[in-house]
């Protein structure tokens, strides 16, 4: 169910994240948080909740480490079902 609604997906390389939190403030869907558990380098990395993600790539654009990879769903049915819940950036662009 959740997977069907998802329009975007981001992958953060948490072992290389320095926890600066810039992606957390720029995310328009508030779907990134700072983790409670530290990584190998002792930083508290950004952690993602992909349910609300629209694949706008704002987080990846601001990330100083360039460790965020963004994917967006081309499947129109999935994008449509995501639109019903809340306005997304994909809707604005269409």
């Amino acid at each position: 169910m959740r997977n069907r609604e998802m329009a975007g997906k981001i992958i953060i390389d948490t072992e290389r994240c320095k926890g600066c939190g810039l992606c957390v403030i720029v995310c328009p869907k508030n779907s990134i948080v700072i983790s409670r558990h530290s990584n190998k380098n002792g930083y508290f990395p950004a952690q993602v909740n992909n349910i609300n993600c629209t694949g706008c790539a704002m987080c990846a654009i601001i990330c100083p480490e360039a460790i965020i990879e963004v994917h967006r769903d081309n499947n129109i049915a999935a994008v449509e079902s995501a639109k019903k819940d809340r306005p997304s950036l994909i809707e604005e662009k269409a």
Binding site: G8, R16, A57, E65, I68, V70
Partner: peptide, 16 residues
Amino acid sequence: MKTVFTRTATLKDCPT
């Protein structure tokens, strides 16, 4: 799933 954003080739794949 289409990749919208990924690390570019000229930027070496290493931590800064």
